[in-house]
Computed example of a mutant assay.
Amino acid sequence: MFDRLALPRVLPFFTYLFFILIADVLIWAGYAQEQLRYLYVVKIAAVLALLWCYRRHYSELAWPGRATMGWPAIAWSVLAGVVVLLLWLNLGASWMVVGEPAGFDPRSGGGTDWLLVVVRIAGAALVVPVMEELFWRSFLLRWLQSPNFLTVDPSLLKFRYIVVTAILFGFEHNLWFAGIVAGLAYGWLYVRFRTLWSAIIAHGVTNGLLGAWVLMTGQWAYW
C-alpha cells in the first residue's frame, strides 16, 4: 500500500492527520485552543510542500480534454459542491454526529485575525480537496479494485468500492453522515467524468462556500 506509486498520494493525507493528532495531544496536555491558532498554518504548509515535491507523480492531475471536462462537467461539479454544502449544513441530527468538533474562531483580542481566515479558507478550498481526492478517490478507491491502481479507469470502478470509500471518508469527519453523502457525490463525479478534477472542483466549492458561510454566521464549530 505504501509503495513508490502510492506514497505521493498517501503521505500528504497522513501528514494532515498527523497534525490533527498533534493538536489533540496538545489539548489533552493542557494547551488552550488559543495557543494552537497557527498550527493550521503549519499543517497546510506541510501538506502543500509535499504536494509540490510530488507534483510530477500526479498524472491524474493533468487537465483532461474537453471530452471529459468541458463546461457541462464543470457545471455538474459546481452544482454537486453546492448541494453537498446544503446537505452538510442540514444533516446534523444527533445520530449523524460523532464526537465534538474543536472548531476554529479567528477572533482574537477584540478583532478578527484575517491572515488566519485567508489561510483557513485557501487551505480548505484549494489544498485540502487536492490532498484528499488524491488519497480517497485516485488512490484508495482504485486500489480497492486493483493494487495496480494507476491502470484502473474510473468509469470501471465497482459501486461497492465507491460505497466503502465514502463510508471511510465520512468517518474522517465529525459530521459522519454528511461526510458519507459527500463521499458518494465526489465518487460519482469521478466515475461519471473519469477525471479527478471533477471531484476536486466539487470538494473545493463545498469547502470554500462553507468557509464563507461560517464567516457570515459565526458558526465556528463547522471549522
Rank of each mutant, 00 (worst) to 15 (best):
residue 183 G to H: 12
residue 211 G to K: 02
residue 137 R to V: 10
residue 52 W to R: 04
residue 98 V to E: 11
residue 102 A to Q: 13
residue 69 M to V: 09
residue 96 M to F: 12
residue 85 L to H: 03
residue 67 A to L: 12
residue 153 D to M: 11
residue 206 T to A: 07
residue 132 E to D: 10
residue 149 F to A: 01
residue 152 V to K: 10
residue 62 A to M: 12
residue 186 Y to L: 15
residue 85 L to S: 00
residue 131 M to F: 07
residue 184 L to R: 08
residue 73 A to Y: 04
residue 80 A to N: 01
residue 62 A to W: 12
residue 82 V to A: 15
residue 91 L to M: 15
residue 28 W to V: 08
residue 163 V to C: 01
residue 167 I to V: 15
residue 68 T to F: 08
residue 4 R to S: 14
residue 112 T to H: 05
residue 207 N to V: 08
residue 11 L to Y: 07
residue 64 P to R: 07
residue 179 G to S: 13
residue 76 W to G: 06
residue 72 P to F: 04
residue 5 L to C: 04
residue 59 S to K: 14
residue 95 W to Y: 13
residue 30 G to Q: 08
residue 197 W to V: 04
residue 184 L to N: 06
residue 165 T to F: 03
residue 115 L to R: 07
residue 22 I to R: 01
residue 177 F to V: 10
residue 55 R to A: 10
residue 24 D to T: 11
residue 177 F to S: 05
residue 223 W to P: 00
residue 126 L to W: 02
residue 207 N to T: 05
residue 214 V to P: 00
residue 35 Q to C: 00
residue 170 G to V: 10
residue 201 I to E: 00
residue 109 G to S: 10
residue 210 L to C: 01
residue 206 T to P: 00
residue 42 V to P: 09
residue 39 L to V: 13
residue 1 M to I: 10
residue 209 L to Y: 07
residue 104 F to N: 09
residue 7 L to V: 14
residue 93 A to P: 02
residue 10 V to L: 11
residue 61 L to Q: 08
residue 88 W to N: 11
residue 100 E to S: 11
residue 3 D to I: 03
residue 49 A to D: 09
residue 84 V to P: 01
residue 182 A to N: 08
residue 146 S to H: 08
residue 81 G to C: 03
residue 53 C to G: 15
residue 46 A to C: 12
residue 83 V to C: 03
residue 125 A to D: 06
residue 173 H to W: 09
residue 52 W to E: 05
